[in-house]
Simulated scan of single mutants.
Amino acid sequence: MTLSASASPLRFSHPYESFHHSPAPHSNTAPNIGMNTPAQIASIVSDLTSTARHGMLRAPALALPTISMAKLFFRYAAMNSGKSTQLLQIANNYETMGKAVTLYTSAIDDRYGVGMVTSRLNIQREANTFDAGFDFLAQDYGDTACILVDEAQFMTPEQAQQLHRLAHTRHIPVICFGLRTDFRGHPFPGSAWLLSLAEDVEEIKTICQCGRKATMHIRIDGQGHRVKEGPQVEIGDEARYRAVCGQCFHRD
């Protein structure tokens, strides 16, 4: 069987995220055969064999964002979902291709040292920091091929607007990673603006202890009891926060 890779009806939204498949009428992509009968499966396999014989079955393309597709990306998730791991992998992928990246993280996140992007897989690298007064537009990005921002929930609304303008006026892809809401379920101002402005928004999935998809997180005290009141920002790791599903979030 010979497969043609001349074009691709499958689209990766980003090289480190699952691809989305939206087949058009008369799609030449493989169907889902999970619950079909043996006769239906035999028919599907026959159709695929015929399609491949005529060179119509095509492999997916994989590409990093370039200046021709510069826009603002926002990848959000509950805590402990691998956001920083994905950021560091993307940075590595660009640099392996000989392209420069600029990394940022929040100056208030000192869990692993100020100015450090750290994965729970014990991968770490230095990054520039931003605080509430930082101006992303005032920086010289030189030959930067991509800007990567960790802990983006701590940005101000103005900084989210700056990054949107930067992507479209300087033609540099900007990929932000962060939480969507705080421990009370209230949106972080920076995240609310990123959700409004980003052209490409995607959830990074993780699971709750109960097995459902975690979409929220809760704050806990030193004895493991839930804390429902307090300041929005309180830096902490698994000892202070837990990713939960909506049902567990609303459980008293």
Results as ranks from 00 to 15, higher is better:
N28L: 15
N28P: 13
N28Y: 09
A30N: 02
N32T: 12
I33Q: 05
I33W: 14
I33E: 06
I33A: 13
I33K: 10
N36R: 15
N36C: 11
N36K: 15
T37C: 03
T37V: 06
T37H: 07
T37S: 12
P38G: 01
P38H: 06
P38V: 02
P38S: 01
P38E: 00
A39L: 06
Q40L: 05
Q40P: 08
I41E: 03
I41P: 05
I41G: 01
A42L: 09
A42D: 10
S43E: 08
V45T: 06
V45K: 14
S46N: 12
S46G: 12
S46Y: 15
D47I: 02
L48F: 10
T49V: 13
T49F: 15
S50E: 04
S50N: 09
T51G: 12
A52H: 01
A52R: 07
R53H: 10
H54V: 04
G55L: 04
G55A: 07
G55C: 03
M56W: 10
M56I: 01
M56Q: 11
L57H: 02
L57Q: 00
A59T: 11
A59Q: 10
P60L: 07
P60T: 01
A61G: 15
A61L: 15
A61E: 14
L62E: 03
L62Q: 07
A63D: 05
L64E: 02
P65E: 00
I67C: 14
I67S: 15
S68P: 14
M69V: 10
M69Y: 12
M69R: 14
A70H: 05
A70F: 05
K71A: 04
K71S: 06
L72G: 00
L72V: 01
F73R: 02
F73Y: 13
F74R: 02
F74T: 02
F74H: 05
R75H: 05
R75S: 00
Y76D: 00
A77V: 00
A77E: 00
A77Q: 03
A78I: 02
A78G: 10
A78T: 04
M79Q: 02
N80G: 03
S81M: 04
S81F: 07
K83V: 02
K83L: 01
K83E: 01
K83Q: 06
K83S: 04
T85A: 14
T85M: 11
T85D: 06
T85I: 05
Q86V: 10
Q86G: 03
L87S: 06
L87V: 01
L87Q: 01
L87A: 06
Q89P: 08
I90T: 14
A91I: 03
A91Y: 04
N93R: 13
N93S: 15
N93G: 03
Y94E: 00
Y94M: 02
E95N: 07
E95I: 02
E95Q: 12
T96M: 13
T96P: 08
M97Y: 14
G98Y: 13
K99E: 07
K99V: 09
A100H: 15
V101R: 04
T102H: 10
